[in-house]
C-alpha cells in the first residue's frame, strides 16, 4: 500500500479515538466544574492517574497526527505539487511538538 493510503486509514483510526478522548478531556476540563481555575497542583493530582496520563498522551500524539495530516490534506487540495515538501515540514513540526509536549507531561510527574 502507498503512503497516502496509510495516511488516510490512520486519519480515520485517530478520528474515532479522538472523538472519545476529546469528549473525556473536554468534559473533565469544562463541564465537571465549569468555574474552576486550573492550577499546577490540581493538574498534578489528575496526572498521577495512569489513565488520565494515557488520555493526555493519546490526545497529544493522535491529535497532532490528525491535525497536521488534515492540514496536509488541505495543502494537497490546493497545491498538490508542494504536498511532499509540506508533508515533511509538518512531520517535523509534529515530532517537535510531541517531544516538547511530552516534556510538559513529564514535568507534572517530576516537579
Amino acid at each position: 500500500m502507498k503512503g497516502s493510503l496509510w495516511a488516510w486509514i490512520f486519519h480515520r483510526i485517530t478520528a474515532i479515538l479522538l472523538v472519545v478522548l476529546v469528549a473525556i478531556h473536554f468534559g473533565i476540563m469544562h463541564f465537571v466544574d465549569p468555574t474552576a481555575v486550573i492550577t499546577f497542583a490540581d493538574s498534578q493530582v489528575r496526572l498521577q492517574s495512569a489513565l488520565y496520563m494515557l488520555v493526555d498522551v493519546g490526545l497529544l500524539v493522535l491529535g497532532l497526527y490528525h491535525g497536521l495530516n488534515g492540514i496536509r490534506n488541505v495543502v494537497l487540495d490546493y497545491w498538490p505539487r508542494a504536498g511532499k515538501a509540506v508533508g515533511w515540514i509538518l512531520t517535523l513540526v509534529g515530532i517537535v511538538a510531541v517531544g516538547y509536549g511530552s516534556l510538559a507531561l513529564k514535568a507534572f510527574l517530576t516537579q
Partner: peptide, 30 residues
Amino acid sequence: GIAISVFLLLHIWEITSVVRGGAEGFTSQM
C-alpha cells in the same frame, strides 16, 4: 479542522509553560 489544528499548537505552547516556568509559571499562565 484548520482552527482546531492551530488551537492545538497554541494549546501545547500554553501547557508547556510548565517546562519554561515550572509550577508557578504554569499556575500563573492558567
